[in-house]
Structures are given as structure tokens and as C-alpha cells.
Design a binder for these strands. Structure first.
Lengths: 216, 216
DNA sequence: GAATTAACCTACTCCGGAGTAACCTTACGC
DNA sequence: GCGTAAGGTTACTCCGGAGTAGGTTAATTC
């Protein structure tokens, strides 16, 4: 009888698929503002407007839940980048588009980014998932750099490419982190800044120039 | 009677100053391999070869202890950098030396670095300490960039300098993280890689060159 | 329109780990 | 040589929060 009271739309008894997404949304918000350990399942359930056993019934343990968050947000992030990059464009254009895709995602999904980045390295069961995601991104970037190198007819050792990719990804993360705390900043502006910082240097490298210490 | 048994040097009853350092050493090791939350005071006490109440007596609560670790390692890190940089050298030389100092520290104190970096952003009481440390490093780097800019007779907006400093610090952290897991790598080599990656680009920027998207 | 299933809740159990009370014991100052 | 402070311990308390047992009500199915 209560449920059919006129006007009160009774949000109850939603199908599982819908509830699961609501729970994931809530979990991402709570994990992002508390961190994994400080987040409690009670708070997540509360944020989702549901009781705790439902969370366990649908998404499993706290670890499982966090994993699900990481996977969902990680997939979205990767897709943002990959969709933006496109095939068969000049390397600098690809890098530019990739950065725009990346910073665009961070700007639009700050909580998702916080979940992915700010838990980074604890020795958790899910640390592997995050490392794998990061490794895939580094791999994509390294691939772009390799392509740029070979296009120039030059060649480079893999170690150096990987290191450059790490540097670039680290720089992007660092700026993204700053961006996440500065909502007024335009993500494209961040992308342009990093592009300037990295590409001009990369181009010099591609042309074989090296910086040398002037003293031993 | 037991303590005076011949040959067995009875490590007991050490003065407070010594025990405190042992405890901090142990805490840094445990925090670095477990992360803040997964580390237990029991394990830290055990690692230090002492009982738990002694840790509380000397260093206070778990938060206090972690703070003490962060402060000690952070001070050491900052000193490594500052000592290496030196005054009144050309900007590129300063950057080079600063990077060597930084990567040298990481290579020599992997656990200390892990404590500082891998806990980075949780909403902990000590998050402020870490943020402050990072902010100081960013400030130092931004100062070097500013100096380089004015030496060239150019000028740059503060926002752009800060952003470049963030990028550089992020890139350094990312490579340091990789370095921490690759003991065979020479820290100076990492420093040289990053120097090449960043300085050549920075020089271009100083000369007023900008990368422009070729398409809208 | 009964039977079954899916959505949902209250009210627990249980455990790890932070922090402490209360009590020993060695060193050494006088 | 003895009093006392500093170094040290065992054996607890207590609580937050993960995870669950068991039951209720609304939608489907036939």
C-alpha cells in the first residue's frame, strides 16, 4: 500500500542492472573522497540509498567492489584515450589528441580519476589491476614514440623509449592531479601545456640531439 | 644473571635515542612494504625487536609514527636535492644536479621513497605533510625555471611555470617509481634520460617556440 | 490467484588491530 | 648497597567495520 501512494514514485524494487550501476557510482564517489581503507561499506550502501547486504549480494566483497570500480573507470579512461587518438595520423597529432582525451576524461570524471590514481601503490590485491592499466597506457605511449622515431628514419633503444613513456605518463598524471583540484581550469589548456613541454623535447631527441653535462 | 652470560652481548637496555632510530628504521621498512593501513603496530614493533608499548611510549600513536617517518625521509630527500643543486650555476646545470640528487636518493633509500610516494593522496591526517613536501619541491623547480626564463630575457606567466614544474616533478616521480623496482638501473642514467626529455623541450619553450595543433 | 523468485531489510557475529594497565628489572647516582 | 628512574614486558580492553543469518514484501509466471 505504501508503495502505491500517489505522487511518491517509490524508487524501490529496481532491476538488478540498474542498482548495480547506482552502487558502482556511489562506490566511486566514496572511494574517491575517502580512499580505499577509509571508505566503509556502510557509507557506500548509504550513499547508494540501499542496505549493505544488497551490495554484498550484487558486487561481492569490498575488494571485489573496488576492483569493479577500477575496471569500470579504467576501461572508460582507456577508451577515452584510444577513441581520441585515431589511426594513421602524424605522431604529434596523435599525442595531442591522446592528451586531450586523457585530460578531458579527468576533467569530466574527477572521482573516477581519483579512484584510479590516488590509491596507486599499496600492496593490495587490486594493485595488479592498476599496474596493468598503467602498463597498457605506457605501452600505448611508447608505441607512439616508437612510430615517431621510425618515421624519422632514426632508431632508439627500447629502454629509452619506455623511460620516455614513463616520464610522459608521470607528467600527465601529475598535471591531471593538479587539474582535479582546479575545476576552473580548461582541460585542453592542460593538454596544450604538456604538449609543449614534451613534444618539443621529444622532437629534439628524434633529431639526435642530446643534452650533455658541461662538467663532470 | 642471564644478561651477563659470557659472549652474549645482551642488546637490551639501549638508550632512548638509539631505540627511537631503530624504531623509525623498522617503521619505514614496514610502511614501505605494506602501506600505511596494512602495516600493524605489532609488526613494526616486531621488526624493531622491541615490544609494542615501547613504540607508543617513544613515538606516540600510529599517525604520529607515520608522520615522523615522513618527516625524516622527506627532510633527507629534500636535503639530497638542495645539497646537490648548489647556488649560482647555470639553470641546466642546476636541474641536472638536482635530478642526480633526487634519483641518487631514491636509488639509495628505496624504502624511504616508497613511504613518501606510495601513500600519496589518501585523506589522512598526514596527507598535508606530504602535500607540503611536494609543494616545496615544485616551488624549488618552478624557481629554477623562472630563473632560466629571466636569464634569457624572456618572461612567462606563473601558471605556465607552475604547470611545467608539476610536469617535471611528476615525470621524475614516475621514473623514480620505476627505478625503485629496478635495482640494476644506474640512478644517474635515469637522471640523464629525464634531463634529455625535459630540458630540450624547456629550452625550446624559452626561445618562444610553441607547438600548434595542425588541425582544429 | 497461488507459487515462485527477485528485491530488500534489520539485526546481528566476529575479528584484527590500535591503544593501555599494571607490572617487572637493570643501571647508576649518590 | 640501595633508591629510583629509565628501559622493558605480558596480557589485556575495546571498537570499527567486514561480512552474514534469517526474514519480509513486491513482482512474475503459469
Amino acid at each position: 500500500m505504501l508503495a502505491s501512494v500517489q505522487g511518491r514514485p517509490s524508487f524501490k524494487r529496481l532491476p538488478r542492472a540498474v542498482r548495480e550501476q547506482q552502487m558502482l557510482d556511489a562506490a566511486v564517489r566514496v572511494f574517491s573522497r575517502r580512499g580505499f581503507h577509509e571508505a566503509s561499506m556502510d557509507e557506500i550502501a548509504d550513499e547508494a540509498g540501499i542496505s549493505k547486504p544488497m551490495v554484498y549480494a550484487y558486487l561481492g566483497s569490498k575488494d571485489d567492489l573496488f576492483r569493479a570500480c577500477v575496471n569500470r573507470e579504467g576501461t572508460r579512461l582507456l577508451e577515452s584515450i584510444v577513441a581520441a587518438v585515431g589511426d594513421d595520423l602524424p605522431a604529434d597529432e596523435q599525442l595531442w589528441r591522446g592528451l586531450r582525451g586523457f585530460f578531458g576524461f579527468v576533467g569530466a570524471h574527477r572521482e573516477g580519476w581519483a579512484v584510479l590514481y590516488r590509491q596507486a601503490k599499496s600492496r593490495q590485491p587490486f594493485a595488479g589491476d592498476l599496474a596493468a592499466l598503467r602498463a597498457r597506457i605506457v605501452e600505448v605511449v611508447a608505441g607512439m614514440l616508437r612510430k615517431a622515431v621510425t618515421q624519422q628514419g632514426a632508431d632508439a633503444r627500447d629502454q629509452d623509449l619506455i623511460a620516455s613513456a614513463y616520464a610522459l605518463v608521470g607528467a600527465a598524471e601529475s598535471i591531471a592531479d593538479w587539474l582535479a583540484d582546479h575545476p576552473e581550469e580548461d582541460p585542453d589548456r592542460s593538454a596544450a601545456r604538456l604538449m609543449n613541454f614534451s613534444w618539443l623535447g621529444a622532437r629534439q631527441l628524434l633529431q639526435g640531439e642530446l643534452w650533455q653535462p658541461s662538467s663532470a
